[in-house]
């Protein structure tokens, strides 16, 4: 059985009201979800709250959930919305609206490199910094969490073509900055 099918079976059990299945989902996805939430919120307590809220909502509203092909996709999408909500609440003393408040950072230390030297790291850091916030978020979701283009389009509420264009442009920028040759696949 593939990982994916295994996840779906647990998911269906959870939807039927099996609390043990919810715990299984939690232990399967908590690490990745927390990782993403921390990147968005940059505060560990807020990140953990966001993850917990996602699971509380999932449990409370499980009867209304239909047709989910990928539990991970569903959880990441909910988490992103929850983080945005918490950020907004936290800043409620300003009703400042910024088009995209998510500006995640990818550090060179998070990537698999052929050689760990400071010079290369600095070059990679600079190149990653030059990507737009949206490009960074998309390549993070795509390559850290292995989401597909359609799922990315739905999570970010942009169309499929835009997702492809963002990744294409981001990768070209990284290639031009000679980053790709230092990566260990």
């Amino acid at each position: 059985m593939t990982q994916h099918n295994k996840h779906l079976i647990i998911w269906k059990d959870m939807l039927k009201g099996d609390l043990a299945a919810l715990e299984q989902l939690y232990s399967l996805f908590h690490t990745d979800l927390y990782h993403y939430a921390l990147k968005i919120t940059e505060q560990s307590d807020l990140a953990e709250d966001a993850v917990q809220d996602v699971f509380v909502d999932l449990w409370n509203y499980r009867k209304q959930i239909t047709n989910i092909n990928s539990p991970k996709f569903y959880l990441i999408r909910s988490l992103r919305n929850q983080c945005l909500k918490l950020i907004k609440k936290q800043n409620r003393l300003t009703d400042f609206a910024i088009v995209n408040p998510i500006n995640i950072i990818i550090a060179p230390a998070e990537l698999q490199l052929k050689a760990e030297n400071d010079f290369v790291k600095k070059a990679i850091e600079t190149a990653l910094h030059k990507l737009s916030p949206r490009q960074r978020e998309i390549i993070y979701l795509k390559f850290y969490n292995n989401l597909d283009y359609e799922e990315l389009a739905e999570i970010l509420e942009i169309n499929y073509q835009s997702v492809v264009n963002h990744i294409h442009k981001a990768m070209i920028k990284l290639r031009q900055a000679d980053v790709l040759q230092h990566l260990k696949y």
Binding site: E23, Y26, S27, H30, T31, D32, H35, E48, V51, Q52, F55, V56, E110, L111, Q112, I139, Y140, K142, F143, Y144, V164, I167, H168, M171, I172, L174, R175, V179, L180, L183, K184, Y185
Partner: peptide, 26 residues
């Protein structure tokens, strides 16, 4: 090809103890 390969992240491994503690809170 470049887009399929993407950039390779180091995967954070699951910290069982931490996950368990958080689940208890949840």
């Amino acid at each position: 090809k470049m887009m399929e390969l993407g950039i390779p992240f180091k995967k954070q491994s699951i910290n069982q103890a931490k996950t368990k503690a958080n689940w208890d809170k949840l």
